[in-house]
Design a protein around this nucleic acid. Structure first.
Lengths: 112, 112
DNA sequence: TTAAGACATCGATGTCCGTCGATGTCTCCG
DNA sequence: CGGAGACATCGACGGACATCGATGTCTTAA
C-alpha cells in the first residue's frame, strides 16, 4: 500500500507548484478538509501524550462508531495519523512530520 | 452571501478545536484540497504583482476554460482569491490574510 | 469455552464535486 | 451597429464521499 512519502513541499507562494507536487499534497489537504476529521486531529494532538484511544474519540461526537472509525482510517491512510493497538484499545497519534509538510505549504518564506 | 470572516484559528495542536471553529476552517481547506486549485493559487501567488489574468491561467492546464473558471470561483467564494476586472481581462490575486489563517492552523507553537 | 466489549469492515443510500459542451454577458475595435 | 474575444453561467453526467445499520474480528474476563 506504499506509505505516502509525505511529500515535502515548497511554500505555495514563491515558486509555482508543479503538477506532481500538487497531486501529492492535495490528498493531505483533502483528508483534513472535513470538520470532523479536523476536530479528530485536534483532539488527538491535544491529548496527553499526543495520543488518544478511539473510545474517547467516539464520545466527542454525535456520530456512529462506524463513522468515526471511517474518518480515522482516512486520516491514517493519508499518513496523518499513526495507529497502535494496545490490548483491547486502539490508540491514534499525530505524525508531526505530516503536519509539518502541510505547514510548509502555507509558510510564506518568513522574514527575519 | 456573507463574506466568510476568515476564521482566525488557534493552532491544531495545543487546545482541542471547537466544532464551530472546525466548521469555519474546513471550507477553506476544502477549497484548497484539489490539485488544480492548489496550482492555481500557487501560480497566482508566484506571478508578478501577486496577480494573474484568467487567460494566462487557462494555458497552464489541460482543462476547459469553463472548468478553470469554476475552480477560480470556488477559491474566490472561499475568500482565498480576490477578483478584479480590468477591461476585457479579469485578474485574480491571493488574499494573504486567508493563507495566513490556514497557516496558523498548522503552526505548532514554534519553539525558541 | 463462552460471553462481552472495542474496533474494523461491508453494503446501501443520498449528496456533493469535477468536468464538459453549449450558451450568455460584457467589452473593445472597426 | 456588428463582430470577435474574454470570461461566467447553465445543465448534465459520472465518480467520489459521508453516514448509517449490520456484521465480522480480535482480546480479555469469567
Amino acid at each position: 500500500m506504499s506509505e505516502p512519502s509525505l511529500a515535502c513541499c515548497t511554500p505555495l507562494t514563491g515558486t509555482p507548484m508543479s503538477a506532481e507536487q500538487a497531486e501529492q499534497v492535495a490528498p493531505l489537504l483533502k483528508a483534513l478538509a472535513d470538520p470532523v476529521r479536523l476536530r479528530l486531529v485536534s483532539l488527538i494532538a491535544a491529548s496527553a501524550g499526543g495520543e488518544a484511544c478511539v473510545c474517547d474519540l467516539n464520545d466527542a461526537f454525535d456520530l456512529t462508531q462506524a463513522t468515526i472509525s471511517h474518518h480515522l482510517k482516512v486520516l491514517h491512510t493519508a499518513g496523518l495519523l499513526d495507529r497502535e493497538k494496545r490490548g483491547v484499545w486502539v490508540h491514534y497519534s499525530v505524525r508531526p512530520a505530516a503536519l509539518d509538510a502541510v505547514a510548509t505549504l502555507f509558510t510564506t518564506a518568513v522574514p527575519a
